[in-house]
Nucleic acid binder design. Structure first.
Lengths: 146, 146
DNA sequence: GGTAAGCCTGTACCCGAGTACCGGATGCAA
DNA sequence: TTGCATCCGGTACTCGGGTACAGGCTTACC
């Protein structure tokens, strides 16, 4: 009947205490056992799950996506509906697109630094400015989300 | 006394009408002239400023940073306090760090796809999993902000 | 049994960058 | 002068991922 208390789990996973309950509300973390007085008692696996969540977030998945991932992983009996495999591939493509996008941005910044321009508005008026105002903005409006 | 109306400016810059007023509130866009009835009448430069804002955002600057940039650019008389030059260099470093970070993420995802792992939680338990749960999470907690 | 630390629920707030909606006033052309 | 499009200010809401606080109960140790 013993288990880890919430603060132990939070500390072990390097996560705020409130975050545990937030994840529970969001359905990412299963509701744990309770003590007689109502305190949460987590199994040791909870720490693993938290680490997995954090790693997945770091890999670019949103909490909703992580929830789905954990969900399909859990009761994957028979048919497999676009599991980790497919989603990882898709996410990889997203990340690669974002890298490409940031590389455009980096080279633009580099050009701006090298050209020595120092006043954006003044610069934008004349064609000597290396910053492609027209083309840079509509580039990838949602490549920035996530 | 004539000038562009707000919707004309918004359309020309490819921006929502509300965004104009939002930028005005945030101090990014100077308060324009008004008609007798109180309608805003913008000079043509406003469109340029908006495009600059959008480009700068795209380059990774936050609206606060853009505001500062426009501010220092405006009344730069005598001393120059870390102008576009310095900030661009710093931002370039940030962007490069972010690219490096995303490359780690991409290669991790690639490894996960190649290893064919399909259940994060089960995988995390055994050492065959290519995902470095311990090291990936605390990698760069703020490289993700912006 | 006392006391302090820890945990409970619920609610509200934070960040950044907008967007939406409301009732009322204005601009402009016919 | 009438009518419709546009604009006004103000407020509230969105999204994603948490964080903070208040007031009260539980647990653990002495």
């Amino acid at each position: 009947m013993t288990g880890l208390r919430s603060s132990q789990v939070a500390d072990a996973a390097g996560v705020n205490l409130q975050t545990l309950r937030y994840y529970e509300r969001r359905g990412l973390l299963a509701e744990p056992e309770r003590s007689l007085g109502g305190h949460r008692l987590y199994p040791a696996e909870a720490v693993t799950v938290l680490k997995v969540i954090k790693a997945a977030q770091r890999l670019g998945f949103t909490l909703d996506e992580v929830a789905e991932l954990l969900d399909t992983a859990g009761h994957r009996h028979g048919r497999r509906d676009a599991g980790l495999q497919e989603r990882s591939k898709a996410k990889l493509a997203e990340v690669e697109a974002k890298i490409a996008d940031l590389q455009v941005i980096a080279s633009t910044l580099r050009a701006a630094v090298e050209a020595g321009c120092d006043d954006l508005v003044a610069c934008a008026g004349r064609p000597c400015c290396p910053i492609p105002f027209a083309t840079i903005a509509p580039g990838a409006p949602d490549a920035d989300s996530r």
